[in-house]
Amino acid sequence: MGRYLIRRTLFLILVLWIVSVLTFLIFVKLPAGDPARRAAGTRTTEAQVEEARERLGLNDPIWVQYTRFAKGLVPWPGWFLNEQVYYSFKNFVPVKEEIFGRIPVTITLAVGAGATWLLVGIPIGIISAIRRRSLADRAGMLFALFGVSAPVFWLGLLFLYIFWFKFQQMGWPHAPGSGIPTGENLFEAVLAGRFVMPWIVLALSFAALYSRMTRGNLIETMGEDYIRTARAKGLSERRVIFKHGLRAALTPVVTMFGMDLGLLLGGAIITETVFNLPGVGQYTLNAIKTSDFPAVMGVTVFAAFFVVVANLVVDVMYAALDPRVRYS
């Protein structure tokens, strides 16, 4: 177990290093346009651009630049997203401050959506699997097909159109619209139900995937020899399904969940944009639109860090859930 974890951790550090090198090369050494010129702004003299170049440290040797950049990946006080590199040259705010200020919104969105898709997807998958070819199964798989096919931006706008705009027009109690009004903190926003539509919209496609995955895994598991053994012991069908079947069928689902959640914590760009939620994803989109290189690098590094951490958590969970992994 210990050796397994050490091996996985070393592997993930390697991944982070590769990400850092690639990000560095793309944003610092191969930028679309001179970063110094972009930092200095439009209508500037050569001297001002040179000054910006010096200020950004772009005249330093490449390894000094890389070290400064790579420090931003190390979760150490003063290093992580350090202000020397990760400092927005559009709104002159440290990227760390922006991200840390926005991460609660993203976490609220991701965790709420995650809970929603698990609570919807897994039960649908289970029912579909044990009542295979029934009406419930057909309905469940139709839902899955819809969920997988419907793009989030379309679904988000559709929800806003129906539950906010149309409901408001007809005088029905309507859902809160998009965004969080100034002066309202996150907790109040959750209580006001401002996250309900984003949760549902973001969760739908995942719920569809998870219901399919649960169904497929459970059907496969229920055909295993050890399920026959469990029945031959005289266990009730309920126990056979929920103890012996789901235990094996849900293990890959749990690990998948860790990965998906890690990915979303790096920012759910589309959902945050459609519902105007001030999360990391929205910041990412703005940074890209305004060519704010330090900000883009920052969110890239930040998202990579979350994905890697999620991977590690998933590896630990996998080892805890599947005894065969611990010894390999």
Binding site: E224, Y226, R228, T229, A232, R247, A248, R324
Partner: peptide, 16 residues
Amino acid sequence: MGMVFQDPMTSLHPYY
């Protein structure tokens, strides 16, 4: 009545 099956490699639950 108890039953023993053909393939002992797959007849026991791998997680318990």
